[in-house]
């Protein structure tokens, strides 16, 4: 696995605000690398330093073999950027904007292709100022791909996108990864990070508090899974004897069984053995959101 980004001990302050305290991370070729964290945690500052758009006060960086501080010009030609905050002139048209930025690259992707891909076909001649929030966002994502980059940074990828557009975007980002590109994605949507990212870094107050696959982060939590079902009149068999079960609760019809390991299968088998087959048996697993809340509030307490 080739390393495309190395960051060691990045530190950046604005006056008395420490935006990034100490961030180190590595991103590998062909992966979708997620960065999540609370507001003001330093995510944007981190990725903008990596893109050579801001200069860290200290720390070492290497992106695609370039030093983002001294070689920002060369680096920016190789990467794609969708910034959390930026704009285009109000009166520029969608098509014009894509053609304009394509003219600054050596191997541009055709604007018609990008317009089609990012669902802007109906708005190709619309002025930027007349686009809806989600349409602007899609244009910005399209602009990030205009130079056919090896590595793209997407800061708040799906902000303002409706559920359909969001899912379509996820599909496209996966396709891009599968074509051998690397994606760095900052997001607030846990669902997005879980669905899309190969690895995720959680940044809190300017530090990386955890870095793993989404599954790894969730598993690392040691939070039990919960099995829910309802039971009309029947007697509840003794489930606390089932391997892995930690707690059984019942309120009215509703039963909740907490435990670890393959508890769903074992509980189901026990119920069936007693002639009970609840139609609404379901399991609730901890999500990335649980991991996120646990990890970021833990670092707040410390």
């Amino acid at each position: 696995m080739r390393t495309v980004i190395t960051a060691e001990h990045l530190h950046k302050e604005y006056g008395s605000t420490v935006a990034v305290a100490d961030v180190s991370l590595e991103v590998y070729e062909d992966e979708i690398f997620g960065i999540i964290g609370p507001n003001g945690a330093g995510k944007t500052t981190t990725v903008e330093c990596l893109q050579g758009l801001r200069t860290p006060d200290s720390g070492r960086m290497r992106v695609l073999g370039f030093d983002p501080v001294t070689q920002s010009g060369e680096l920016r030609k190789q990467i794609g950027s969708q910034l959390q905050q930026s704009a285009l002139p109000d009166r520029i048209r969608v098509r014009e904007a894509l053609d304009l930025f394509a003219a600054f690259t050596t191997h541009p992707i055709d604007s018609a292709t990008l317009i089609e891909q990012w669902g802007l076909a109906g708005r190709r001649n619309a002025a930027f100022g007349d686009l809806s929030g989600g349409q602007k966002q899609r244009l910005f994502i399209a602009l990030a791909f205009v130079n056919d980059p090896q590595l793209v940074f997407l800061d708040e990828l799906t902000q303002g996108l409706d559920p359909q557009a969001r899912r379509a975007t996820w599909g496209l980002i996966r396709e891009i990864r599968d074509r051998g590109k690397t994606v760095v994605l900052v997001t607030h949507l846990m669902e997005e990070a879980e669905a899309l990212c190969d690895r995720v870094a959680i940044i809190d107050r300017g530090r990386v508090v955890a870095l793993d696959t989404p599954q790894g982060l969730i598993a690392g939590l040691d939070v039990p899974v919960t099995v829910h079902f309802s039971l009309a009149e029947q007697e509840l068999p003794d489930l606390s004897a089932v391997a892995g079960v930690q707690r059984v609760g019942r309120s009215g019809n509703r039963v909740e069984v907490q435990g670890t390991g393959p508890v769903l299968a074992l509980v189901a088998a026990e119920l069936v053995a007693h002639g009970i087959a609840p139609a609404d048996l379901r399991v609730e697993r901890p999500t990335l959101e649980d991991a996120f809340i646990a990890l970021t509030s833990r670092s707040k307490r410390e």
Partner: peptide, 17 residues
């Protein structure tokens, strides 16, 4: 106003010299 609106940020990220 280009600077205030963030248009220049976009230009720089797109390698406009």
């Amino acid at each position: 106003s280009y600077r205030g609106e963030g248009v220049l940020r976009r230009f720089r990220a797109s390698s406009v010299p």
